[in-house]
């Protein structure tokens, strides 16, 4: 067992336990912490195949920025109350979710099995145009700023737009806040419903309420 494989397996266990933790943690804060674990694990996996730059980005952007953002939101809104995972309001959702997840897993594995990756694993630090072997970061940079430069520019725009959008969305609207319309009933994906059955009347009322709200804002 090479060091490479060993590192992969260790990090893999970290990733898997972390992701299971995200899914199973009742408390969102815990879930966020598990997410950090996972992301670190993934960063390690990146390192294993010598994607140094991406590993760094992974830690900085994901663990450093995104998860912190999650935690900020949790704190800011005080939505840190635990979720009761033993209850499932939508009938049939959970079993079907497991079936679907398992099916996806099985099918992906089957595809992986049948696909047969034929490339030569190795160092992506391939020789550059001048024949010298360039570091990973240089290669990445060259690709991004030459072939993919248009996409890169677009991502820049995307981020700007996203920031503006986020500001607009999260901006506090003057005046009293209107509560969201109360939706009394929840019905599943055609598998029956909980609570009282939804009727058109309710839906219309809800729509009407939504309209009013829109007018006010």
């Amino acid at each position: 067992m090479s060091l490479q494989l060993f590192s992969f397996l260790v990090a893999g266990v970290v990733v898997l336990t972390g992701s299971l933790g995200v899914v199973m943690a009742k408390h969102p804060v815990h879930a966020a912490l598990f997410l950090i674990q996972t992301l670190f694990g993934v960063a390690v996996e990146f390192l294993v195949v010598e994607a140094h730059f991406l590993a760094a980005i992974q830690v900085i952007v994901y663990a450093g920025a995104i998860v912190i953002l999650f935690l900020f939101v949790i704190m800011l809104l005080g939505v840190d109350n635990a979720e009761d995972l033993s209850v499932e309001p939508i009938i049939g959702q959970r079993p079907l979710a497991f079936v679907g997840g398992a099916a996806i897993l099985g099918l992906l594995l089957a595809i992986i099995n049948s696909a047969g990756i034929t490339g030569v694993p190795g160092n992506v630090d391939a020789p550059g145009p001048t024949g010298e072997v360039l570091p990973n970061v240089n290669q990445l940079a060259e690709s991004i700023f030459t072939e993919q430069v248009f996409a890169f520019e677009v991502t820049g725009i995307l981020l700007t737009v996203a920031v503006v959008g986020a500001v607009v969305m999260a901006r506090r609207i003057p005046g009293a806040l209107q509560p969201l319309p109360d939706i009394p009933a929840i019905s599943g994906f055609g598998f029956g419903s909980t609570g009282d059955t939804d009727t058109d009347g309710d839906a219309d009322a809800a729509m009407a309420a939504g309209d009013e709200q829109g007018d006010d804002s």
């Binding site: 939508i90 959702q93 679907g100 996806i104 099918l107 929840i186 599943g188 994906f189």
Partner: peptide
């Protein structure tokens, strides 16, 4: 069209399966 995000997600999942 129940309006439930998770139901839709389930639909997507089953579709991708």
């Amino acid at each position: 069209q129940s309006g439930l995000v998770r139901s839709y997600a389930l639909g997507i999942t089953l579709g991708s399966v």
